[in-house]
């Protein structure tokens, strides 16, 4: 009988690739040319925002000659023209990138924290607590976000940027918590969770080590879309004059500054608008390929 009962080398098999799930997703995302371009463009915009003080040719708030230098169309000295206060629009757009992105990211961090916590608790607890929490969420979701924000901001004019970020964040987690709850609900009966339970893992450990790491992908997708959404919201609110307090430069503020003479002073809306559209588009493209990569892995 040549057949062995020993399998001393059972460990052999197809060459395992040394790659963590994270590295795999990143590679999946970068495979598409569109997402490579998007990542590059977004990288440039972020860099521009980060390095604003070094790049901007002028002080964004400086009003060098409110009569002689106002309302200038694009020229070599002012590639994006100047605004009614003689400020350099290019410099303001550059600083606007900084502010708009920062608001987008910070507000999203706020909603991410709330949404993940709320959703994870509801999903993991289940039962009556889950039911109650979800009905509360339904109530929140039934009020349009923009309306809620306008109401708050009109009632409290002159809010600081910090407060604006908090409000944007406070109104942005409802959808996300839904997603998180659904994912936690779907995963909490997975066998690896049961295995952790059988090992004696605490609820907190199961949540942090087993559930959340496995729902990072949909959360990141939602967060990416969330940043884009906040940027648009902020611009809209600023355009209505209840967003970022002037004279700070955000993309919405710049457009607002030129809105009185929109057809003639086209540069005032074109350039900040272009940046905003680019940012939102690239974020959306990235979110899409993230979610593709996620689907593929499943």
């Amino acid at each position: 009988m040549p057949w062995q009962t020993q399998d001393f080398a059972a460990a052999s098999g197809p060459t395992p690739q040394r790659e963590s799930p994270l590295a795999l997703s990143v590679r999946n995302i970068l495979r598409k040319p569109s997402s490579r371009v998007a990542l590059f463009v977004l990288g440039v915009i972020v860099l521009v925002g980060l390095l604003a003080p070094l790049i901007a040719p002028y002080n964004p708030a400086a009003q060098p000659d409110i009569v002689g230098l106002k309302d200038l169309p694009p020229s070599l000295a002012h590639p994006f023209g100047t605004d009614p206060y003689s400020r350099d629009v290019l410099s303001r757009v550059i600083y606007g990138a900084r502010l708009s992105l920062m608001i987008g990211i910070l507000a999203t961090i706020v909603s991410l924290t709330l949404g993940v916590a709320y959703g994870a608790i509801a999903g993991y607890a289940g039962g009556i607590l889950d039911a109650v929490m979800m009905r509360v969420l339904d109530a929140f979701l039934s009020i349009p976000r923009l309306l809620l924000l306008i109401g708050v901001l009109v009632a409290w004019p002159k809010l600081s940027i910090g407060a604006l970020v908090v409000f944007l964040g406070l109104t942005g987690w409802f959808g996300l918590s839904r997603i998180v709850r659904g994912q936690v609900l779907a995963l909490k009966h997975a066998e690896f969770v049961t295995a952790a339970q059988a090992l004696g893992a605490s609820r907190r450990r199961i949540l942090w080590r087993h559930l959340l790491p496995n729902i990072v992908s949909p959360i990141v997708v939602a967060a990416t879309l969330g940043v884009a959404h906040v940027i648009v919201l902020e611009a809209g609110l600023s355009y209505l004059g209840i967003g970022v307090p002037k004279p700070l430069a955000s993309w919405g503020n710049i457009i607002q500054d030129g809105s009185d003479q929109f057809p003639t002073m086209w540069w005032m809306s074109l350039f900040p608008g272009l940046f905003m559209v680019l940012t939102v588009m690239t974020l959306n493209i990235l979110a899409e390929s993230l979610s593709d990569a996620y689907e593929r892995r499943r």
């Binding site: 799930p21 997975a190 066998e191 690896f192 295995a195 080590r209 087993h210 790491p213 496995n214």
Partner: peptide, 11 residues
């Protein structure tokens, strides 16, 4: 467990 896929945390 039975299922060699779902019984290990992929992360």
């Amino acid at each position: 467990f039975q299922d060699p896929v779902s019984s290990l945390n992929p992360r």
